[in-house]
Write a protein that binds this DNA or RNA. Structure first.
Length: 427
RNA sequence: GGAGAGGUGGCUGAGUGGUCGAAAGCAGCGGUUUCGAAAACCGCCAUACGGGCAACUGUAUCUAGGGUUCGAAUCCCUACCUCUCCGCCA
């Protein structure tokens, strides 16, 4: 969430950010009104509580007769405080609900726009391969090589579930392992994470902001156990240090988490339904870092560069896109997507998403650090995240870009140590 | 899944209704001593929010949320977590 002080002192800045994110800024007024009410009520309640505390002290040493007379008075006072506290609790709860609705403010660099159509391509990298034949899409390629079974995925679990088979299983693992090794080399701490988490963890990550999100949002829900399946390792990674005060010397903290990712993809039926592009379950290596506020802009670029390095090593052609304000998620202040060229599908497909969430998640999660320069001072960290590599989308890119005319697939050089084969072809 | 025992400050641990934000010890910080260090001794040592120029002061916090009471770390309920035994299990 945002700092209430910021909202108090600069409401127009917040409203403007909300307009840019295409969210109704009305909430700001409601928040300010509630804030005022609860502060006033809290002041009154505390004053009465102080009186009660003082009088209660006297009871300890009072004579039995004095006690009886005092007790009735104090009862009344106590009941009044009780009422006020109940009201205060309601106000606080309503206040929190509204605070969670207010999204992070888009960075000044972020272009205006409502949907991903208004995202801005800022760079194109790598070489787009020229084919001497008409490239097939990954589904056709994979089916022909017995690497994929969509039909039976549907039979067992429904639409958008799938089976990977044979060398594609190896290739998937190769890609993920490759990402882990590169990140480890860069000093990231590797982690597996809880793949289910409580609603709180999702609120903390900013992936839920309303009870409706928890009820019928994009996360799969295990109702009986009050858990949700994570849509990304980010949930586990960003919650890792929740409620901790770190030392400035500990920062930056850089984590690479590997996890399955589960997404209901509600409302996306009919969009990009072909093949493995949009599925309910996939595996991903995700980067999350915690840094000092003054370092987050540089860190954001660094995370982008890491992802680009991975793609470059894989020999893939991609473009970097700066997301418009309307396409930013709740906790994000600035985001680049990387879209990798998928010749069979004939388009650039989103394979990476690199966000700076500034102190938005950290404030909700209460992750601070001790500032060395000032004694006793603490500040919220900034949190950032980016995809390292995500299967199966990266498999789409690999299959489609490395296909040969005979339908076989060449394995990129860097993956061969992991696959143990350099080509997938019909047996 | 069944039965039981617990959750107190950075750590260990005392506290079973009032004077408890919480003894004591350890760790940490400052000082005395010392050429320096160790030891010893003395002092300091939680956080959040509010009021005040400040000294200071109010409120809350003993896992969390509710309840009983004039008053709760202490009694009751619920959730979460930990441990022990049994069962089951990769």
């Amino acid at each position: 969430m945002l700092d209430i002080k910021l909202i108090r002192e600069n409401p127009e800045l917040v409203r403007d950010g909300m307009r840019r994110k295409c969210v109704d800024p009305q909430v700001v007024d409601n928040v300010l009104k509630l804030d005022e009410e609860r502060r006033e009520l809290r002041k009154q309640t505390e004053a009465e509580q102080a009186r009660l505390n003082e009088s209660s002290q006297k009871m300890a040493t009072a004579s039995p007769e004095e006690r009886e007379t005092l007790r009735a008075d104090l009862r009344t006072l106590s009941d009044g405080i009780q009422d006020k506290n109940n009201k205060l609790g309601e106000l606080d709860e309503r206040f929190l609900v509204l605070m969670r609705i207010i999204p992070n403010i888009p960075d000044a660099d972020v272009p205006d726009g409502k949907t991903d159509k208004e995202n801005v391509v800022i760079r194109t990298e790598g070489v787009k391969r020229e084919f001497g034949f008409t490239p097939k899409d990954h589904e056709e390629l994979a089916q022909a090589l017995d690497l994929l079974d969509m039909e039976r995925g549907v039979k067992v679990s429904g639409a958008k579930f799938y089976y990977l088979k044979n060398q594609l299983v190896i290739l998937e693992n190769a890609v993920l392992r490759f990402a882990l090794d590169v990140l480890r080399g860069k000093g990231f701490t590797l982690m597996t994470v809880p793949n289910m988490a409580r609603a709180d963890a999702f609120y903390g990550a900013g992936h839920f902001s309303t009870p409706e999100d928890a009820e019928d949002g994009d996360a799969y829900r295990l109702e009986r156990d009050n858990l949700y399946l994570v849509g990304t390792a980010e949930v586990g990674l960003v919650n890792y240090h929740a409620d901790e005060t770190l030392k400035e010397g500990d920062l930056p903290l850089r984590y690479a988490g590997i996890s399955p990712c589960y997404r209901r993809e509600a409302g996306t039926y009919g969009k990009e339904t072909r093949g493995l592009y949009r599925v309910h379950q996939f595996n991903k290596v995700e980067m999350v870092t915690l840094v000092r506020p003054e370092d987050s802009v540089r860190e954001h670029s660094m995370l982008l560069a890491v992802a680009e390095e991975l793609l470059t090593k894989l020999g893939l052609h991609y473009q970097v896109v700066l997301n418009c304000a309307g396409d930013l998620g709740q906790p994000q202040s600035k985001k680049w997507d990387i879209e990798t060229w998928m010749p069979g599908m004939g388009k650039y497909g989103e394979t990476h998403s690199c966000s700076n969430d500034t102190d938005y998640q950290a404030r909700t999660l209460n992750i601070k650090y001790r500032v060395n320069a000032q004694e006793k001072a603490t500040a919220y960290v900034h949190t950032l995240n980016n995809t390292a590599l995500a299967s199966p989308r990266i498999l789409i890119a690999l299959l489609e870009n490395y296909q040969e005319e005979d339908g076989s697939i060449t394995i990129p050089e860097v993956l061969r140590p992991y696959t143990g084969f350099d080509r997938i072809s019909r047996a």
